[in-house]
Simulated assay, not measured.
Amino acid sequence: MTSRLVVVHPDVDVLAEAAAARLLTRILDVQSVRRPVHVVLTGGTVGIRALAAAAASPLVAAVDWSGVHLWWGDERFLPTGDADRNETQARAAMIDALVTSAGLPEANVHPVAGPDTAGSPEESAAAYAAELAAQADDGAPVPAFDVLLLGMGPDGHVASLFPGHEALGATGATVGVHGSPKPPAERVSLTFDAINAAREVWVVAAGAEKAEQAAAALAGQPVAEVPASGVAGTDRTLWLLDTAASDAP
């Protein structure tokens, strides 16, 4: 049976450092029993700060990065190298250093295609679905992600699944998103089917502007109104919050 745990840290700095330590420890724990390890990264302020903290941790040297695959829960449909892409920010925070000096193979980094290599969000989503399936076991549509990181917006969105948006009902592994209420309008996202195939899902959120929606999600409000309420790992779901995000009025 899946379990849910809410962990509250005193501020965003401690949250980012703790999430980083937790992530590296999780990778090490999984590597002791199976390989490869599949990790889904998120963007956002706290997500990128956590990756930077992970890159600076001495635990990095203990991980066999040759056996780790990195994915993204969503991506803005922007050209490779654009500063607003989650991939670009994650490379600067952590991935480039791992590739250069920690033995992470570039082939194990799985970015979402942008308009420089895909003609539309749908084409990019289809290509990503194929890449996910190629790394999955036993014909599954996606790997059983060992940890899937998600940020949460002040509106309760996760990945690029926004309240009231048609993408909420998408099936399969991925979906092309148009008309996102948060720029840019075009994106690619994992679906709830793919997210909830993860062994562990971690929602990382900080700030008072997230508190109301975090409380609503934890209370099980409708997914159409609070998409974050619809995510759960098959083994465990973690909500990693700072005090401000946990203090709903």
Rank of each mutant, 00 (worst) to 15 (best):
G164D: 07
V33Y: 11
F192P: 05
G164Q: 05
R76Q: 03
T88Q: 13
G81T: 05
A61N: 14
T171P: 02
S124N: 04
V63D: 08
H178E: 15
F162K: 14
S229T: 00
S229L: 00
E123C: 11
V8M: 08
E200H: 02
V63E: 06
A126E: 14
E212Y: 00
D84R: 14
A185V: 11
L15R: 06
A92S: 05
A159F: 10
D242N: 07
H157L: 01
P227L: 08
G114N: 02
P249A: 14
F192I: 10
R76I: 01
S66F: 00
M94V: 14
A232S: 13
E122C: 05
W239T: 09
L24G: 10
G114F: 01
A20H: 04
A97Q: 08
A52V: 00
L150D: 06
L70W: 04
A211I: 07
I195E: 03
L78H: 10
G67I: 00
A219G: 10
T234W: 13
T25P: 00
A167Y: 05
R187F: 07
W202P: 02
A140E: 15
V6S: 13
G151V: 04
T171C: 11
G207L: 07
E131D: 15
L161G: 02
W202V: 10
E106A: 15
V158N: 07
D155A: 12
S246Q: 09
A228D: 02
Q135A: 15
F162V: 12
V39C: 05
Q89D: 07
A54T: 07
H69L: 14
A219H: 05
A97P: 00
P115S: 03
W202N: 03
Q221R: 15
G220V: 12
V6Q: 12
P111Q: 00
I48Y: 06
G151K: 07
D247E: 15
G119P: 00
A197M: 03
L132I: 03
W71N: 10
A205V: 09
G230I: 00
A245I: 03
A118N: 04
R187H: 09
E123K: 11
L51K: 04
E87Q: 15
L132W: 02
A185K: 13
G230L: 01
L78W: 09
F192K: 08
L168P: 06
L168Y: 06
T88K: 13
N196R: 05
R199I: 02
A50T: 13
A216Q: 13
A16S: 11
P121F: 12
D64F: 03
P115E: 01
A232V: 04
A215V: 09
E75Q: 13
E209S: 15
L70I: 06
